[in-house]
Amino acid sequence: MVHFSGLDYFWSIAYILLTVFSGVLFYRLGKRSGADFFLAGRGLPWWLPATSNFATHTATDTPMWFSGWVYRSGMYGIWGSLFAGWCAISAFVSTRIFRRSLASTQAEWQTLRFSGLPAELMRGWMAGWQVALNMFIAGWVGIAMGNVCAWAFNWPIWYGLVIFSTLCAIYAMTSGFWGVIIADVQQGITMLFIIILVSIWAAMAAGGPTAIVEKIQALNRPEMLNPFHFTGFVTGDYPLLWLITMIIVPFFGGFGMATHSDWFVEAQRIQSADTIKSASYSIWSGAAAVIVRNSIWVIAVLAFFVLNPYMTDESQYQLAWFRMGFEYFPPGLVGFFFAAILAIHFSTVSGILNLGAMYATRDLYNHYINPKATDKQIVRMGRLWTLLVLLGSFFFGMMIGKDVTKWLFFALWLMTAGTWLPNILQVIWWRFNGWGYLSAWVANLGICWLVVWILPAFGILPDLKDFQQFWLLMVLVALVYLPVTFLTKPDDMDRLVKVYVQTRPIGFWGPVRREAERRGLLQKKEEIDLRAEQEARKEG
């Protein structure tokens, strides 16, 4: 139970008012048009989406799972940061391709890249999936806040979920992406400042960096200080194959789109940047900040470990970072620490609410139900769907409750393991067609269910580790989409030439490039980039 002084209450309430006010302040800009409500008019300088990337990817559950990894595995846990590594490649490959396409959403990209019925089916499928997924993520992050408040203030678990997600929805509904992005900037600065401060305070509480190292060795856990401590190729707690998987997946994933579930958040920020160069810089620097953040967190978690070395209950030691702040900060600073936790929470939930509403509004409503919708109708529908995603997040959040780890299992494998390679192929291989891509998505949902739950339950398949499941799913899903691709016709050549000329994808596009040259459509890349920027400004 955390005790707040008068100054602590002041900091917390002042911060809530500042955040909601700074978001609502952009009400007039947000309601100007659909492009403003969902993409801030496509005119942002690189540092705004960059800060938003960092702030959105720092959520209430992030220090929990990161603390869990580092408490269990020491420095080996730092390789979890490789998850963000795909941005380093994507910033100069798929980010630029996607930005040139001017697609508002990843679902819209489907109807630019593929042709005919499968392209439309893929757009509808992905839009519906994204609405549900963002409800799930907002619920997941929301209930993490519920758990923190239950531990800190003895509140019922739903208080933290409902109160703080609703506060986010106020400015996400009134100002849309403008409110989200402006609030993200002050939230990103606040949280980075506190993250650094907690690590300094934690290191001091544990006696300084040298004392931490000595105490870890005295506890007979020297492997915690060695990030290259492997227990075998696939065996033990620290297998080498896990690290190899963690390097291969982000590296090659950066050549594709939607290879990581983070892509959908990034895609919105890519299209909100004012130029292609800005989009690249924002993705690269946002991810770099995430990796630096993790390195700073390690200090606080290792300090917590030497102060509390014998904890075995994951639900307790995953609160390491929160406990260092609440237990070691002096009165007055505790309230500021809670304000930073609110910043971490608000930035993620507000972004996710707006993202879920964008797929429901731009793709399902504006593309399928009312293609002639006015900007006023689009903004109104955007606000309604922000509210519906919020209510959906309450449903998922209350279902998750304290079973965060059980649901993490579901979240990771439901999503992208089997579609990882098709998501790369759609960018680098002209012959990969709409039917092949759609079959990969549908097959992935079915096969991951079989591999992860059904077959092990009946003893047909042994319980595999997550990285082993990844490789198995990749092969099994490929056995579906590769035959489907070759048994169906390539996409319409007019469509392929159009997407090639506009977006300049890398990889195996020979026949399409030759056709584009024959039609005299190929210009210099610089001219294409300039035209894309002019069109974006016009739309903004």
């Binding site: 089916l121 519906g128 999936w129 799930f136």
Partner: peptide
Amino acid sequence: VVIGMTVIYFFSLSGLIFAYIYYKKNK
């Protein structure tokens, strides 16, 4: 797993059906 999958399938298939109706109507 069953509840999570059901919700995800419900939304994904709803989107797919919207798309199919739109495509047929346009054609």
